[in-house]
Design a protein around this nucleic acid. Structure first.
Lengths: 210, 210
DNA sequence: TCTCTTCCTGACCGTATGGTCAGATTGCAG
DNA sequence: CTGCAATCTGACCATACGGTCAGGAAGAGA
């Protein structure tokens, strides 16, 4: 019956509890939406009293904002996979891989993001208008360059990007529907690979690089 | 300053108010999610007192259920466009057209559906397991037949369907993001056509029928 | 050890929300 | 015209939720 013996440092306590809360919050926000989520539910899942949540995050909005920002960071990092590619097939293929992996390992985050955007992006509108817009413009330019050099079929870069986002994120956002249509079982390792292969195959052939 | 003179029939009253409420509800549920939506907001948008809503729909859940069911019906009808096609290109092309049109004219419905599925389909789980599963199996079989006959590239039918859903619904579910990246303006007629063309082009070429 | 700051939490509060209900109004059948 | 059932609604209620706070526990620095 021995307790954890080592006393915790201030830093550790703060870091640990913030992480605990953010993880619980991400899950609850994903499952219930902002309006449906309650601080009590998040607290229970994090194993902390509700009042403690308000010690670390003043309001529900602030907690939500932090969750959404975290997700955004992750996605931006994944985007790097598209850069420094020798060929369009490599670049876009790697991007699809990266986004499919995120959908698999981070489905809650994707759902929170989708929910946020669907509800009019009340808290991350400025991100959309600055960071995301810049990122999108940059990649669209890259794709346009590839097209101009005749290395892929002439498609609208913007709409190609939408297609990449839509297709990959669908596996996270609609995971429940996919699971149901899969006999109630989550996709297996093999099925995930099949999904990834199919997406890449159709899109890469679709833009004329296969 | 003349009022509408004609007194309304019972049937008309009921039909009209139910429609009014359902339309308002669809919009509010789409914008705020189930948890964030309030009966008061729906009532205000419908121009009726809140108590009147509860006269036609006993509970918030019941109203929500009706909204979701309506959407499901619309989608099922759209699916007919895939049948009776001479070629894969025709069938899938028509299905893309139909779903893109729904995304454009019925974006709220798509959002409500997405939200419902993301939250674990609490009210339409049985539809997923029966109607949708059957529909999906049927179309997957059709696609497989096309593949077996060598009329299109050998792709996984199930994942192709997911791709069609994802790509087309993205234009409804993420309309806010798309609008923001479009300089804050909704897609124009021309841009919608470009979107449709691009989606069809990439996917149809992707499955080897272009 | 003593003091200060951070961390923690049970109890509490104001408000908003889903839902109820009694009673008024109005179309409708006979 | 009359009685009945459908429609309507302001006022009300119980509950759940986000947020507060006073006061206790526990590391940190001297």
């Amino acid at each position: 019956m021995n307790e954890t013996p080592r006393p915790m440092r201030r830093n550790e306590i703060r870091a640990m509890n913030e992480t605990l809360i953010l993880q619980a919050a991400e899950k609850v926000f994903a499952e219930a939406g902002f309006g449906g989520a309650t601080m009590q539910l998040i607290a229970d899942l994090a194993g902390l009293p509700k009042a403690n949540l308000h010690y670390y995050f003043a309001t529900k909005e602030e907690l939500y904002r932090r969750v959404v920002q975290n997700i955004f960071e992750i996605w931006l990092h994944a985007a790097d996979s598209m850069d420094g590619a020798e060929t369009p097939a490599e670049g876009i293929g790697a991007y699809i891989d990266a986004k499919m992996d995120i959908s698999r390992r981070h489905p809650e985050g994707s759902k929170v993001w989708a929910s946020e955007v669907m509800h009019g992006a009340p808290v991350i509108q400025d991100y959309l208008e600055t960071t995301l817009r810049d990122w999108t413009a940059g990649r669209a330019a890259l794709i346009q360059r590839w097209i101009d050099e005749g290395r892929m079929a002439p498609v609208d870069p913007q709409h190609l990007l939408y297609m990449l986002w839509a297709t990959t994120q669908h596996y996270a956002d609609f995971s429940h529907q996919i699971e149901t249509l899969n006999g109630g079982k989550p996709l297996s390792e093999t099925q995930w690979n099949a999904a990834k292969t199919n997406v890449k195959q159709i899109i890469l052939r679709g833009i004329g690089v296969l």
